[in-house]
Design a protein around this nucleic acid. Structure first.
Lengths: 226, 226
DNA sequence: TGTACATCAGTGAACGCGCGTTCACTGATGTAC
DNA sequence: TGTACATCAGTGAACGCGCGTTCACTGATGTAC
């Protein structure tokens, strides 16, 4: 008999896993990715270190889950931001804003997925899949609004059009220049928010939001470039 | 009597310090910033750990030196690239290329200065000074060629024009929009090269150099924007 | 040029700390009849 | 409803490892007269 309702034990397991992940995120926020330790998490939960091995195969497995969770969480935020927009410009602005806000709200999770790779941690394939979900939000927006043309470049365009990272259901609806636009868009957003959260702007006495807005303006201006 | 020539001991000291830093950079390249350990460096030099305390006050002091060295090294690379250019466009292209090449040649040093901040390491003021030297290359280029106007924005422009990060000898020669242009320029370059060296493009099967070139094209196009 | 002293590089032991992971085990919770 | 067994959560000890840093000390190099 296959169960539909989770048993008490299953529910408890899920709760404990979530609690452990929550403490992991707190540690991440406090001491950065290097300070992420199973023992410390267990301590915070009032358990001993080895107990966590009931819930996660190893430290790397925990990290993998955190990365996938972060990608999915970010994806949801972007999806929701774009959901009720129809015009290209409004979509870009909504997405860019959501991207920045998500990042500022949880910089440590952002660092985890886009920051310096953790020493000794090799990202498994599942993280790539999760990463592509986030990218798909951008691509869908561009395909739906037929926007973002930018200057063509034969060699690059060909490479992009056959890229394995392009979702199959969007491939026919996206040109090389549109894909290039999508990549530059994400790179620009990343450039700004990563410098902002790593504190490069703190001593410069200007409001990063204003600079960000200006960059979004240029992105919007390039939306209809030939 | 003040010495002009260094004594044998002074020379030896300098050599040992340099050698230690060299090993530190190798470790950085191998295991990332978290794997940077005084003991391991000493081991690589055939010494014991405590011996290094003759040369560096602490681990943090070593890291600070590495950061400052990296900023200076990058600054020199950028300065040399721009040196013999006169036109704005040629200058931007030369600088961008040099920036990417420096980064790809030593990604770990790039991570050290622009990547995730090290846990437990608080950057002292000297690193900010070194960082501004690199920024000054960009600002000088823009001031000398009177380029990079971009769209004005009263609030942001005012904040930028009085920014403490603008070198005093350049302040009168740079408008708010020019400063904004400089910031966006660096953020875009950072966005692309940081994603490239953190491996986000490896599974996407396109040549990052082509994407980079296209971004430089848009930067050049914005050089004369009103 | 030779001797007496000061300076400095490097050692080895030690301190206290934390890590990931394995393993044999206890005790509680759930399941089958 | 009660009993016998299986499953699972969590413990505590242990392994081997590495870290930054302090300290008393040895031995070599340099300096002053």
């Amino acid at each position: 008999m296959t169960r539909t309702t989770p048993t008490r034990r299953e529910r408890y397991r899920a709760e404990t896993r979530d609690e452990a992940k929550g403490h992991a995120l707190e540690q991440l926020a406090e001491s950065g990715s290097a300070g992420l330790s199973l023992n410390a998490i267990a301590r915070a939960m009032g358990m001993t270190g080895p107990a966590l091995y009931r819930y996660f195969g190893s430290r790397d497995e925990l990290i993998t889950e955190l990365i996938i969770d972060a990608y999915n969480d970010l994806s949801v935020a972007l999806e929701q931001a774009v959901e009720h927009t129809t015009a290209a410009e409004a979509g870009i602005r909504a997405m860019a804003t959501a991207f920045r806000e998500w990042t500022l709200a949880q910089p440590h999770r952002y660092q985890l997925i886009f920051g310096t790779p953790l020493p000794g941690y090799a990202a498994p394939e599942q993280t790539t899949i999760a990463a592509r979900r986030a990218m798909k939000v951008v691509l869908t927006l561009i395909a739906d609004t037929a926007a973002g043309r930018s200057r063509p470049d034969g060699r690059l365009d060909a490479q992009l059009e056959s890229g394995p990272w392009v979702p199959d259901d969007l491939r026919d609806r996206l040109t090389g220049p549109q894909l290039a636009y999508a990549l530059l868009l994400t790179a620009r957003l990343h450039g700004l928010v990563s410098l902002e959260i790593s504190g490069q702007y703190t001593l410069m006495e200007f409001d990063p939001a204003l600079l960000f807005d200006r960059e979004v303006d240029t992105l919007v201006a390039e939306l209809t470039l030939g």
